[in-house]
């Protein structure tokens, strides 16, 4: 079991509220991702759950029990740090076994558990090495191993992949997702990368300036963003926003169109523009088009489309996929 509830949690340093008022309910077995730009309070929120920071006010419940004042060790949570935080003077086996040793488990049982975890994580042949002799990906797996052996109620991940190179990051993303399917334990994962959030999460919490902007499944956030911030943050490349007269035609202060929801035509369409940079990825082509009177827009076209710098194109947004926002950036119901 591993449900996590936050009730009106507030965290302030002096008069500055990092987390003004957060309430949240994470179900047992869920994979929840906290995502937001740097400084949005997502790591602080995770550390509050871990018990590494004290809450200023509000409650944190684990499995329905109030754990607000409990020490980190008493919460039965495991954490994987961005820096991995491996013990440099211990071998891989000792690192993984450390929490069990702290729990007073006997040596034989620790060995068995460590072997099992090492098997799952492909670390068996590295058990006697020290962290400094491991690659980044291997260190990451040791950190995960240290977390899984103690069978915690929930795993907390603090930007675990940001120190890895791009290819390895994709791999580890898959491994962590696979691990979640195997273990079915609650996971809370912090990242600033919306791709990680979209691909891994059961549900995503979008944070901005310490406030929870929206909490929902990846597709809910993609299809019905609650506000302009979420709309702009989720989805890659970013949604294009237009305000002024063009938005007023749709009865809104601002409208947004995703790059993948626009048709590109060389002869006719709604908006006329000139191609600036064309990024040919093979599967897709991203066109950065300077639209007359509206500014720069990003459009996704099919991969083999032969369009180049300086070409004149016409863009036509899919009318059913135009998002409308009011003056405060809140989403308006579909027209």
């Amino acid at each position: 079991m591993g449900s996590i509830q936050l009730q009106h949690v507030n965290k302030s340093f002096g008069t500055h509220a990092v987390i003004p008022d957060a309430s949240l309910e994470i179900k047992d077995g869920e994979f929840v991702v906290f995502v937001g730009p740097s400084g949005c309070g997502k790591s602080t929120l995770l550390r509050l759950i871990a018990g590494l920071e004290d809450t200023t006010s509000g409650q944190i419940l684990l499995d329905g029990q109030d754990m607000t004042a409990a020490a980190p060790a008493k919460r039965q949570l495991a954490m994987v740090f961005q820096s991995y935080a491996l013990y440099p003077h211990m071998t891989v086996a000792q690192n993984i076994g450390f929490p069990l040793k702290m729990a007073g488990m006997d040596k034989a049982a620790i060995d068995a558990k460590v072997k099992e975890a090492a098997g799952v994580l492909n670390l068996t042949s590295y058990l006697d090495r020290r962290p400094r002799n491991l690659s980044g990906g291997q260190r990451q797996r040791v950190a995960i191993g240290r977390a899984i052996v103690r069978e915690p109620k929930a795993f907390l991940f603090d930007e675990p992949l940001s120190n890895l190179d791009a290819a390895l990051r994709v791999n580890m993303r898959l491994e962590i997702s696979e691990l979640h399917h195997q273990l079915k334990t609650t996971m809370v994962y912090v990242t600033h990368d919306q791709v990680e959030a979209m691909t891994m999460a059961d549900r995503i919490v979008v944070l901005n300036a310490g406030n929870i902007e929206q909490f929902g499944t990846p597709m809910e956030l993609y299809r019905t963003p609650a506000n302009r911030f979420v709309a702009g943050f989720i989805g890659s490349p970013k949604m294009n926003f237009v305000d002024g007269a063009e938005a007023a035609k749709h009865g809104a202060f601002a409208i947004g169109v995703r790059p993948e929801h626009m048709a590109v035509n060389k002869d006719s369409g709604l908006w006329r523009g000139t191609v600036g940079v064309a990024e040919h990825l093979g599967s897709d082509t991203f066109l950065h088009v300077n639209v007359d009177g509206l500014g720069l827009m990003t459009v996704r076209a099919e991969g083999e489309k032969q369009l180049h710098h300086g070409d004149v194109v016409w863009l036509t947004p899919d009318p059913s996929r135009i998002y409308r926002f009011d003056k405060d950036g809140q989403a308006l119901a579909a027209a």
Binding site: P72, A73, A78, M79, Q82, A85, Y87, A103, R146
Partner: peptide, 22 residues
């Protein structure tokens, strides 16, 4: 790194054990 001390605390080490082992 402070991270390591926090990791030890998460791993259930008391202050005494944190001192001795980490």
């Amino acid at each position: 790194p402070v991270d390591i001390l926090e990791a030890a605390r998460m791993d259930g080490a008391t202050l005494g054990k944190e001192l001795v082992y980490v």
